[in-house]
Amino acid sequence: MIKNYEKFASVYDAIMDDLLYDKWTDFSLHHLPKKKDAKLLELACGTGIQSIRFKQAGFDVTGLDLSQDMLDIATKRAKSANLSIPFVQGNMLDLSSIGTFDYVTCYSDSICYMQDEVEVGDVFKQVYDHLNEGGVFIFDAHSTYQIDEVFPGYSHHENAEDFAMVWDSFEDEAPHSIVHELTFFIQDEDGRFTRYDEVHEERTYEILTYDILLEQAGFKNFKVYSDFEDKEPGEESKRWFFVCEK
């Protein structure tokens, strides 16, 4: 059990490349229709950095995440930016209590954390049912190339004054799946370092599988792009972006 999750999450934020949030924001603004006071739901909003970017861009934003600890940090972050953003604890597999929206986003490969394609399809159906007519759903996912060729054997070590991190990735059993093993050493207020271990399992699918699941959920019109740009996916594209219209 992580006792000081705020400290732990601040390490996540520290190792996250801020440029990615710029890229997600730019891609979204390019593909979401201009609409005054459009209601936007950010799924898997984490510590709220992207939600704040969307709010500053003029959207009426709601953030949803599974982790209340993450949402507590997001709430503090929004408050210190003098922004009012409702952050809701919930699971994207069940959006029944959250209302409807003009736009829904799900970034940082969060869809890859679903257990299997059944859950991915369930998320798509939930999103479809909670989008207004003409609404847009944008999500990104790791490409099969990224999962199969880039991640296996990946190792990243980071050292700072108050934390150290070891990140190793291994091929998992299911097709196009990966296990990330993360070990953090975080300095407490008394100067001692405490170890925290986390395991993250991700899985992706062929583009055709995502297409079929989107169609089954009700989406008739969607396009696939790659690596934050308006270009078709290639053999070595690392991140796919799906822009889906209701």
Rank of each mutant, 00 (worst) to 15 (best):
Y210D: 12
F137W: 03
T100Q: 07
T100W: 03
V136K: 00
G90K: 01
S67C: 11
G46F: 03
K36G: 03
D168S: 11
M16N: 05
G134S: 04
R192G: 05
Q146A: 14
T75V: 11
M114G: 00
D168V: 08
K23F: 10
H30L: 07
K238L: 03
R195G: 14
D37R: 09
L95H: 07
S110E: 09
F241G: 02
Y113C: 14
I49M: 01
I98C: 12
L208K: 12
S108A: 15
G153H: 04
F222S: 04
Y145N: 01
K231M: 14
W240M: 00
N159Q: 07
D22L: 12
L71W: 09
F219R: 02
F170C: 10
L20M: 11
R192L: 06
G121E: 06
C45Y: 01
T204C: 05
E171C: 03
L66N: 01
D211P: 11
C45R: 02
R192H: 05
T204E: 06
D65G: 05
T25R: 06
K7V: 03
F185T: 04
A160F: 08
T47D: 04
E206M: 09
H180Y: 07
E158V: 14
E133R: 11
S28H: 11
M16P: 05
Q68G: 06
R239E: 00
K36N: 11
M92W: 05
Q216L: 08
E229P: 05
P86M: 08
F241K: 02
D22T: 03
T183P: 11
L20G: 07
E245T: 07
I178V: 02
M70R: 03
V224K: 02
S155M: 00
V11A: 09
D102Q: 05
L95R: 06
T47F: 02
F8R: 08
L131E: 00
E117V: 10
T100A: 12
F124I: 13
H142W: 07
E232W: 00
T75P: 01
G234K: 10
V120M: 14
K35M: 13
K246E: 05
E206K: 14
Y5P: 15
F241P: 02
Q68Y: 06
F151I: 15
G191A: 03
T204I: 11
A141M: 14
A9K: 03
S177Y: 06
F139D: 13
E215H: 09
K35L: 14
D148V: 04
D168T: 07
